[in-house]
């Protein structure tokens, strides 16, 4: 693929623990933005940002409506809204109906990011108990982007990565611990 311009990440059940590993292992020099859709239970996204911010070498913030996507930042989709990216690389939110019983939906984020970044996008699907993200990852690949799926074998809940593999396939299917070094390698010059 071409040099990566952005990374989108989707996870659900078990996602918080997985994100700790993923974000914790990132190189602080990473210039790309990360856009994360994590189905949370009752926790607010602000709390999630705070907890993950303690581990992540990159600042973790809630994706802010109308604001520009920022490089070297981790943006989390706010609870209760679909997160989309406009072609001018600004965030948009929507309260349209749930997709795959989810809002935010990984499919919605990945689909809109794939339209914007096309072959410079990396999509990552982690642990989860639904099939959300599978169609989105297919679109990431269709646009020429790179797909990374956590190995279902070691995933806390294998349903989501398995669904992604079945529907989209993957350029890399690796254990969680190997994902941060892989991202660092793909993203750093």
């Amino acid at each position: 693929m071409k040099t990566a311009a952005a990374i989108v990440v989707g996870c659900s059940t078990g996602g918080f623990d997985a994100l700790k590993v993923l974000l914790g292992g990132l190189d602080p020099a990473l210039p790309q933005p990360l856009l994360v859709c994590c189905h949370t239970g009752s926790e607010t996204v602000e709390l999630l940002c705070e907890l993950l911010g303690r581990i992540s070498p990159l600042p973790v913030v809630t994706a802010a409506e109308r604001h520009a996507v920022r490089g070297s930042h981790v943006h989390l989709a706010p609870t209760g809204y679909h997160l989309l990216v406009e072609s001018d690389r600004r965030f948009a939110l929507s309260t349209d109906p749930r997709v795959n019983h989810s809002r935010p939906s990984i499919d919605v984020l990945f689909a809109s990011a794939a339209m914007v970044w096309r072959e410079t996008l990396i999509g990552v699907v982690l642990t989860g108990a639904s099939a959300d993200g599978a169609e989105g990852l297919r679109l990431v690949r269709r646009a020429g982007g790179c797909a990374i799926v956590q190995s279902p074998l070691g995933a806390q809940v294998p349903v989501m990565p398995q669904a992604a593999l079945d529907r989209a396939g993957a350029d890399y299917c690796v254990p969680l611990d190997d994902i941060p070094p892989l991202l660092n390698r793909l993203c750093l010059p």
Binding site: L84, E86, S94
Partner: peptide, 9 residues
């Protein structure tokens, strides 16, 4: 209208 959502709809 904001294009990303409009296109979806």
């Amino acid at each position: 209208y904001a294009p990303a959502s409009l296109r979806r709809r």
